[in-house]
């Protein structure tokens, strides 16, 4: 049995848990806890350990989706989660510009961990005040050739599209290396 791993990261409350929940065939193993810090009371619970979803590809292959803890004080887990990842997705709440700087930092951090392909998913594109994906590409200083994909994390089709775009990027990198 072979397992592969994709990491879903992003700032606090960017929609990582919903993203994994939308596509996982198992109930997401998520260790959500009530939030104690007043500054982070945007939602009533946050991921203190990690989200963990699964997609069975065939009887010999399983894809795992790992969501990173959203709060900065758990960032010691990021590198551990990154070990052996196939690629990563940086999920950004397109309606909250105050989190863009943090998203950029997370992107840079993960990028420094491993030379794997990644994409940025501009979440909550169904909201009226969402920043367009192309603007996020500029704001987050995303490298040329890296995709910024519009996304609605609660919709399965949208999540599928994000995962497919990441896999296409992985293929493109393989083509370049050949």
């Amino acid at each position: 049995m072979q397992t592969l791993k994709i990491v879903v990261t992003g700032p606090f409350s960017s929609g990582k848990t919903e993203f994994i929940q939308s596509i996982s065939e198992i109930d997401v193993v998520s260790t959500e806890r009530k939030i104690s810090r007043s500054a982070e009371r945007i939602k009533s619970a946050t991921t203190v350990a990690m989200d963990f979803g699964r997609i069975t590809i065939d009887e010999d292959l399983i894809l795992y989706l790992f969501g990173t803890p959203g709060q900065r004080r758990f960032d010691f887990m990021w590198e551990i989660l990154s070990e052996g990842m196939l690629g990563f997705i940086v999920l950004v709440d397109s309606t909250r510009p105050e989190t863009f700087r943090e998203a950029r930092r997370i992107l840079d951090t993960f990028r420094s961990y491993s030379p794997v392909p990644y994409i940025v998913a501009a979440n909550k594109q169904d909201m009226e005040d969402a920043w367009p994906a192309e603007d996020l590409k500029i704001v987050l200083q995303v490298e040329e050739g890296v995709k910024v994909v519009p996304c609605v994390a609660v919709k399965k089709d949208s999540v599928k599209q994000v995962l497919l775009e990441l896999l296409y990027s992985i293929l493109e990198l393989m083509d370049e290396e050949e």
Partner: peptide, 15 residues
């Protein structure tokens, strides 16, 4: 961090 050794065929399977 290690990058896994993955064949093209596996990525196609995922897709």
């Amino acid at each position: 961090v290690r990058r896994p050794a993955v064949k093209r065929s596996l990525v196609h399977k995922l897709i």
